[in-house]
């Protein structure tokens, strides 16, 4: 099995704080990998390093063998990595369809082609019926889905999802889980940063656990939840399963 993305000894130091410390992991093509950890573990920093929004202090991010830790976000996107934002960011004066079209312009300048791709992305996440709506008419789950549709329009090989389930009710989250499974089956590789453990257990084939910026575990979800170091980080020292 080939690794689509390899993170090698990634370190990010902010003034007085090492947010990500010597973290290495790799993403297998066509799989869903989850990056989890308690608050302040460095998940989002790690995510932003991969997406090109932050520059690492040390270490490497290799995508299909190309180094991308010096690339700006737009170049990272054009290489085939699309991301969503934890706090949804629709383009507020553009319709749902137009929002979904923007991503397609990373690989085409043809408006019709972009529109077709946008409809396809919206269909993929179940938003096709609201294509002409304004973004402020969407519910929160729909806005989260729009973030995914925008990212899908860029024709990514790797999709980075930052807490896409946060703030959703269980039934709404179940809908997202369905979408993620469908996307993975179509061959897309997905990395999700997630808080909600139950969902991670359901969708991820591999879980990487961070704590205080350090990777403390990696493996199948069932293995990881039984790992004493993981239990300790989530529940505090002295807890035994």
């Amino acid at each position: 099995m080939t690794a689509l993305l390899e993170v090698k000894n990634l370190t990010k130091a902010f003034v007085g704080l090492v947010a990500v410390n010597d973290v290495s992991f790799s993403l297998q093509a066509g799989r869903i990998t989850a990056l989890i950890g308690p608050n302040g573990a460095g998940k989002t920093t790690c995510f932003n390093l991969v997406a090109g929004a932050l520059r690492p202090t040390a270490g490497q991010v290799l995508f299909e063998g190309c180094s991308l830790e010096r690339e700006p976000p737009e170049a990272v996107c054009r290489m085939g990595i699309a991301r969503t934002f934890q706090i949804v960011r629709p383009m507020k004066d553009m319709s749902v369809l137009e929002n979904a079209m923007v991503g397609a312009f990373s690989w085409t300048t043809n408006v019709k082609e972009a529109r077709d791709k946008a409809y396809e992305s919206l269909e993929n996440v179940g938003l096709a019926g609201k294509a002409n709506a304004r973004t402020d008419q969407l519910t929160l789950p729909d806005r989260k889905m729009l973030e995914m549709a925008k990212a899908l329009s860029t024709r990514p090989k790797l999709l980075l999802l930052d807490e896409v389930m946060a703030g959703l009710r269980p039934t709404e989250a179940a809908g997202v889980v369905g979408v993620l499974h469908r996307l993975a089956e179509s061959g897309l590789t997905i990395l999700l940063v997630e808080h909600v453990m139950r969902i991670v257990m359901e969708v991820a084939s591999t879980v990487v656990v961070l704590h205080h910026g350090v990777k403390i575990a990696e493996g199948k979800p069932s293995e990881v939840v039984a790992d004493p170091a993981v239990l300790e980080s989530y529940l505090g020292a002295g807890f035994h399963a």
């Binding site: 700006p72 996107c77 934002f85 960011r89 383009m91 004066d93 991503g103 312009f105 990373s106």
Partner: peptide, 11 residues
């Protein structure tokens, strides 16, 4: 509408 989000979409 959103410079950072546009860049993340490859603009």
């Amino acid at each position: 509408d959103d410079d950072e989000a546009a860049r993340a979409l490859g603009v």
